[in-house]
């Protein structure tokens, strides 16, 4: 997906805590471009589950310590398969 997402994240904060890790370094470690890390940080792009796990592993934290989804948001979604 390349549209603004409701998934928020703490990547910038986690990078700062990890010795001011640069976006480029994180991008290299998870196998994406720096621009993609920037888009994820700015919440304009939702990464795949695989990339999300890779990001969490880099910071040695759980997935939900990096990414958040607003509570109650799932109830507002259409049924599975309702949207292509």
């Amino acid at each position: 997906m390349t549209k603004p997402t409701r998934v928020s994240n703490r990547i910038a904060d986690l990078r700062a805590r990890a010795g001011e890790m640069s976006q480029r370094e994180l991008a290299t470690r998870i196998g994406v471009t720096r621009q993609t890390v920037n888009a994820i940080e700015l919440e304009k792009y939702s990464p795949s589950l695989e990339v999300a796990f890779k990001i969490a592993r880099v910071f040695d934290v759980g997935l939900e310590d990096v990414f958040h989804y607003p509570s109650g948001a799932a109830a507002a979604l259409p049924p599975a398969g309702g949207v292509s």
């Binding site: 997906m1 390349t2 196998g31 994406v32 471009t33 720096r34 621009q35 993609t36 792009y45 990339v51």
Partner: peptide
């Protein structure tokens, strides 16, 4: 360093 770099976001945008 970025020459020919291609990731999941590029592929998603390419498909759309």
């Amino acid at each position: 360093a970025d020459a020919d770099a291609n990731d999941e976001r590029d592929r998603s945008i390419g498909l759309r």
